[in-house]
Design a protein around this nucleic acid. Structure first.
Lengths: 228, 228
DNA sequence: TGACATTTGTCCGTATGTATA
DNA sequence: CTATACATACGGACAAATGTC
């Protein structure tokens, strides 16, 4: 875990402005001496910095600090994930109950029609930012002791820490939708206007679907940065 | 470049189904013998396979082939980039002219109002798939010999190969919009319905904006996969 | 429960290739 | 042309997680 410390150290210096955007970093050899580590380890740290968009490198030239838009708001951080990092989120649970799967849901979860599912909706307000409405479905047979308190906190923590499930991957589909009457009222938007809907599926090992969420954000915008 | 050959070989076998989803790959040591390469090199190839979503690995366990949704349609490949790979695109140029920057454009490009810009619109039909409408602006002072023939082919190649500029990065913003009358006719969509608009900025070194594109796709859907 | 072999992860030192200035 | 700096590659050693007996 030495390389991760180097990564954190350099990342911190970039975020603090000690290495400003456009700056040339010390060469790999210098870093080796500075941290007293081998070049392999330094390069692993640099590789992670590159992967996360903090720096880029050119052979024969050097390692350069990227401008902030490279690493801000990257890769579609929907709110679900941000909860673990900042506590600047107000959560209101609107609804929580168990329902029976209709045809659509049974197909999504690959369960028989009528199977029990947990269903909840919540609004999350990112302080000084936008609102998010989430509608989530989770199969009952996987999460028997699921309850309302968990929803106010972090559901993903519950899945991984309390239930000891391993989250394998998630798939997000982004779509434009017209705001309906219900949404318009809840999020204070204009009926019929266009907004982004994010469909979010969380999978456990063996492609078991653990969570199906529809997210609507009042902020009609998602940004990506790609480095050549 | 040895590792990239290994990468391509294994990737090919995954795509051909020789390694089906869920399969366990040969261990690293076996690969070393098979390809006659060191473990470092094999690991570099595996690392790239992991990065591109083809496989994942667990310490103490092995290297496993991911299901197709892990590597399909990843990371928002807008059409602009796909042109280099497949020739299955029909391009129709609808408009090509020079215009003068209004307030909005002058701000986007950081130029004074009235500066000359190239402007073109084109429709691209992905064979057996969907349509894309692009509206693009490019500053005149950077691309004096720009012409209609280039637009029919690859503009990004023109920027890099012919003009010898280096593309530093690009930023994409996704937004939901209501389809207006013009769009509805061009792309055979319903007026007022919601669809995705991708705003695409291409930057050269020193944060010079070389290209500003608004893209609208008839396919109202973008997918992402993230692996834990 | 514990011991053990297997497999990936991390790390070191060194050498050579290649793009850049 | 030369020096510099990153990229690729080799081989070896130990750590940590996993699965099995």
């Amino acid at each position: 875990m030495k390389y991760i410390n180097v990564y954190k150290d350099i990342k911190g210096k970039i975020l603090k402005g000690i290495y400003p955007p456009g700056a040339t970093l010390e060469g790999e050899e210098i870093f080796c001496e500075m941290y007293g580590l081998s070049r392999t380890t330094i390069r692993k740290a640099i590789a992670k910095l590159k992967q996360d968009g903090y720096v880029h490198s050119r052979q024969g030239s050097g390692i350069f600090v990227n401008p902030p838009e490279f690493y801000e708001e990257k890769s579609l951080t929907t709110i679900s994930e941000r909860i673990d990092k900042t506590e600047n989120i107000e959560t209101t649970v609107l609804d929580f109950k168990t329902i029976e799967a209709d045809e659509e849901l049974s197909e999504i979860f690959n369960l028989s029609i009528g199977s029990k599912l947990f269903y909840y909706t919540r609004v999350r307000k990112i302080v000084d930012s936008h609102n998010v409405l989430e509608k989530t479905y989770m199969p009952y047979y996987l999460f028997k002791d699921f309850n309302k308190d968990i929803i106010k906190k972090s559901v993903s923590k519950y899945i991984e820490k309390d239930c000891h499930y391993t989250i394998s991957h998630d798939i997000k589909n982004i779509k434009a939708i017209n705001v309906d009457k219900e949404l318009a009222q809840l999020l204070n938007m204009e009926e019929g206007s266009a907004t982004l809907q994010i469909q979010h599926k969380v999978y456990l090992n063996k492609s078991i679907l653990a969570q199906y969420t529809l997210e609507i954000q009042t902020k009609n915008n998602i940004r990506f940065v790609a480095v050549r």
